[in-house]
Amino acid sequence: MPQIAQLAETFSSQIFWLLVFFGIVFFVIGRGMVPKVMGTVAQRDSQIGSDLAAAEAARAQADEEEEAWRKRENENRAAAQALVAKAKADAAASSEKKLAAAQKRLDKKLADAEAAVTAARTSALAEVEGVAAEAAQDIVQRLAGVSITAASAKKAVKEAMNHG
């Protein structure tokens, strides 16, 4: 076993060169290079972290803007609806007014016409009575030879007409 057989003659060189090379590894690589590598990793981590934070903030802002836009949109829609409702109401009111005026005019015309008809009927009836009375007077004179007064003829006609 050379590890033991050569121990006495080689231990000093083994230890010496190990300390030299492990020292180089520790001071140059371990102390010099490794912190830089780890620094790069840390830098990348922080970069990723800040990027994520920025993205998060951007998303929050986008949400906020969308919310504001939605609010504005709702307001606009409400205003538009109010406008439409008002226009509708105005139109309804004016048409109602016009309708009412037309109705009034029609009613008046109807009433006039009715009055005229009534008047015409009354005068016609009066004429019919007069004619009937004269006719009755004539008929009575011819048949009975009795002359009756116009007044009594009229009275008789009226009675007859009233009884139907």
């Binding site: 060189s13 083994q14 090379f21």
Partner: peptide
Amino acid sequence: FNIAFTNSAMWMLITTVVLGIFVWGGM
């Protein structure tokens, strides 16, 4: 004390150099 540069020391040197190159490549 004897400090002969042995094959053992040679491989320590190789290890150091290879390790150095490896880590240097990551910098």
